[in-house]
């Protein structure tokens, strides 16, 4: 019998530590599929963040580096400048990329580094126990916004993709979601495009991936997917931003 579906070579045969219903497993796989399909596994260097996906390098089957919280794009910048023939990407959560690492994010984008960024937005801090993220929805209850996010105290959900799109050196930004199979397919296409851009030397490319966190949204996994569709995509509209 012909085998039509198997584990990508860029993904190790290893059980992940993620919670049931978490989007990271899907996002890791989409990165691995894109890497395989582009035939770049032996050239890729991935930068893992600090956050739930801190040990992404235990699951991917290619060269990887850790980075301090928020500093993945500084690490990636240096590697790409020294090794322009390698394909360098960062995989970062909302706290990493849009809170503690905002300066690195904006300045790496503004320098127009030829990098690929996979930005996982699940509107909450996962690894530390469900605190408010820069992308937390208004009214969303977290460990540090027990009455819900209040714009007068906590500001509004930060749309960093739209902010970055205003920079002339940013070449590609798309927001995708993992809430159903159709959207997952679109996410895969965008991730592959962001890698293809780097191969062609296009410049700074970022894919914002809306992802679920049933544990810290305090919802069953299926309800979490509905919430993504009904609530998150209203605040963070899907599609090509730049």
């Amino acid at each position: 019998m012909q085998k039509v579906f198997s584990r990508p070579q860029a993904l190790k045969d290893k059980q992940t530590h993620y919670c049931p219903g978490c989007g990271h497993g899907i996002a890791h796989r989409l990165v691995a599929e894109a890497v395989d399909e582009l035939g770049i596994r032996e050239e890729v260097i991935g930068i893992a963040p600090v956050g739930c996906s801190v040990i992404a390098y235990d699951y991917w089957n290619f060269d990887c580096s850790e980075a301090a919280h928020g500093r993945a794009l500084a690490v990636a910048t240096a590697i790409k400048r020294l090794k322009p023939q390698n394909i360098v990407f960062t995989y970062q959560g909302d706290g990493d990329l849009a809170a503690i690492g905002t300066a690195e994010t904006i300045h790496t984008a503004n320098r127009g580094e030829n990098l690929t960024v996979i930005f996982i937005n699940n509107a909450v801090y996962g690894m530390t126990g469900g605190q408010m993220a820069p992308t937390t929805m208004l009214g969303q209850k977290t460990a540090t916004t027990v009455k819900g996010r209040d714009p007068t105290l906590h500001g509004y959900p930060l749309k960093i993709s739209e902010l970055l799109a205003s920079l002339p050196s940013v070449k590609y930004i798309e927001r995708v979601s993992l809430h159903n199979p159709q959207e997952v397919n679109k996410a895969k296409k965008a991730i592959k495009q962001a890698f293809q851009n780097q191969i062609e030397g296009v410049g700074f490319s970022l894919v914002e991936v809306l992802s679920s966190c049933p544990t810290y949204w305090d919802m069953p996994p299926v309800k979490a997917l509905d919430w993504m569709k009904e609530v998150m995509t209203k605040e963070f509209p899907l599609g090509r931003i730049k």
Binding site: R71, V75, L82, A103
Partner: peptide, 26 residues
């Protein structure tokens, strides 16, 4: 060779981390 004026000392030292991870004297 590679010279970068970083946006902060934090970025600069983390760039050095990346450069060293890539095997370069940095």
């Amino acid at each position: 060779r590679v010279f970068i004026q970083a946006e902060s000392e934090l970025a600069a030292i983390n760039m050095v981390y990346g450069a060293s991870a890539a095997g370069a004297r940095s």
